[in-house]
Design a protein around this nucleic acid. Sequence first.
DNA 1: CTGGATCCGACATGATACTG
DNA 2: CAGTATCATGTCGGATCCAG
Lengths: 158, 158
Amino acid sequence: MKSPRHCEGTVETKGTESTLETDASVDCGDPDPFQWDTREDCQVRQILDRVADKWSLLVIALLDRRCLRFTELRREIDGISQRMLTVTLRQLERDGLVKRTVHPVVPPRVEYELTPLGGTLHHTIRALVTWTEEHQNEVAAARSAYDARVAAQESADA
Amino acid sequence: MKSPRHCEGTVETKGTESTLETDASVDCGDPDPFQWDTREDCQVRQILDRVADKWSLLVIALLDRRCLRFTELRREIDGISQRMLTVTLRQLERDGLVKRTVHPVVPPRVEYELTPLGGTLHHTIRALVTWTEEHQNEVAAARSAYDARVAAQESADA
DNA sequence: CTGGATCCGACATGATACTG
DNA sequence: CAGTATCATGTCGGATCCAG
């Protein structure tokens, strides 16, 4: 119901699909700091989902004021499929975070870079990555402790 | 290609089969700033996925040094199902980001709050949310422009 | 080289019913 | 109230083929 439908597939229902979105109609500018993103139809929730996406995160982090070609990105991001890279880049381009430049040469050369808007996001994303790097050991320890507790509990039940 | 499997971070099973061995064995501490998270077996990637998760994001943002009960969280986060709230809270608890307190009363009263570790994450998450709030209009504009371009292109083809 | 399109399986997620 | 268990399904995402 609240699924943020992808825009992949280049649907020809360009005008009709936007009708079900409550983007423009809903005003999310509320003063309550604890109410800001609680409504699923709020645009902030949608953008947050896009921006915090698994692959989007990596692409943005990788495009640190650098131009990267499609294949370069694909090579750098271990595990991403061609399809997901394409889809992710399209979404980011649509959101104005990534600029796509096609060089009319043969073989085709397409380069991706962050837009100014994307550049501002980069810092935030980077902060998230930094936090993860700095605290991964603590998280791992917490996981082990939790798993140990669960295991102990289960053996106690048996 | 390489290992086609996903980042196996999101498991809602017992946790006994969690990938402990790979977590500890793989060392992600590399100096290259552009290599840090490119490998899918890197623990940073897994944690990033968890932390940047749609619901996790909201829960952490909501638990800003407050104790919230299960139902309160559920009510605040519009659109979340009971199941996903439970799963999300479990994951966060396992990762040591959220503390779960059960009050042995009737009716049961369970409260959730951020751990100190979760508190440090909170700032970063908050920054992400703030960015989204501040730039949602630009993103929306970019989307409209993109959609318009696509529409124009399609009508030109026809 | 850079994708677009399609097929299809797997898994995450939602809905529902049940429990303590 | 706070879950757990089960089932249904939609979406994501990978593999493959094809095109410019």
